[in-house]
């Protein structure tokens, strides 16, 4: 698509409450690239937690409550692969045969994951001001498979001259978060995040970055629990920190 003058920003409930700095960094990156960013006040959650737990009526009700928040046709940018995937791919399914199915479809079609938008639509140029740093990237499963945008984060980080990317073993393997999976199958999830943190730690990277705060909450929480591990950070916050807003 052509470069829009303004975009809506979909905070996601997780970012709003737990990782607002990451969310803000995403907005600042967009603004630095010359985009007017609107954060609609009446957004809450895409409905994914209930949808993935089998509670489709509840998911539908919450998803429906988002429809009025994004009038017009400006793109909707989401700093999360899984929330973007929920809206883009599952809303049409969730709203199927509902009276507002077409509205939901129209919103779905306007959704971009943040790194996807930065690369595909804005084709941003990043200037790296930071010290040399080794990072490992963990792409979320939703960004990788549902949205098909796992390479965007790599391309963005690839623009940073001082940053070296170290590749973890089994990069495509899920970190074990899976929303309510982490609670319903807590021990399996714990085993999975153990393997994931081992693989990430083994890279020797000083920092782990991802497009999804769900993965970061899981991986970062595990590193903290283990008392040893690299810092985890959302890609938006990382890029904002490295570029100080030198984005074009």
């Amino acid at each position: 698509m052509t470069r829009p003058a303004s975009v809506y920003y979909y905070a996601t409930c997780l970012v709003d409450l737990l990782y607002p700095r990451a969310g803000l960094a995403g907005m600042q990156l967009l603004r630095a690239a010359g985009i007017d960013v609107v954060l609609p006040r009446d957004q809450t959650c895409c409905g994914q937690p209930a949808f993935n737990s089998g509670y489709r009526d509840e998911a539908l009700a919450v998803a429906r409550a988002q429809l009025d928040a994004f009038p017009g046709d400006a793109p909707i940018v989401v700093p999360s692969g899984s929330c973007a995937g929920m809206i883009k791919h599952h809303w049409p399914e969730l709203f199927a045969s509902q009276p507002d199915a077409r509205r939901a479809q129209a919103v779905a079609e306007r959704v971009y994951e943040l790194t996807e938008f930065l690369v595909d639509v804005l084709d941003v140029r990043l200037e790296d001001l930071g010290e040399p740093l080794q990072v490992a990237i963990h792409s979320s499963c939703s960004a990788r498979r549902e949205m098909g945008v796992a390479d965007r984060i790599e391309r963005l980080v690839g623009q940073l001259e001082g940053v070296e990317v170290l590749v973890q073993q089994r990069a495509a393997e899920c970190c074990g978060f899976g929303g309510t999976f982490a609670v319903k199958q807590g021990d399996v999830s714990g085993a999975m995040v153990k393997d994931k943190t081992d693989a990430l730690r083994a890279t020797g990277a000083a920092r782990v970055i991802s497009q999804d705060c769900g993965c970061l909450m899981n991986i970062g929480g595990a590193f903290e629990f283990q008392g040893d591990g690299p810092r985890t950070q959302h890609i938006a916050e990382f890029l904002w920190e490295r570029t100080g807003g030198r984005v074009s």
């Binding site: 499963c141 939703s142 498979r145 978060f177």
Partner: peptide
């Protein structure tokens, strides 16, 4: 319940 919906 034994699925993270990772899509692999």
């Amino acid at each position: 319940s034994a699925c993270t919906l990772c899509g692999a």
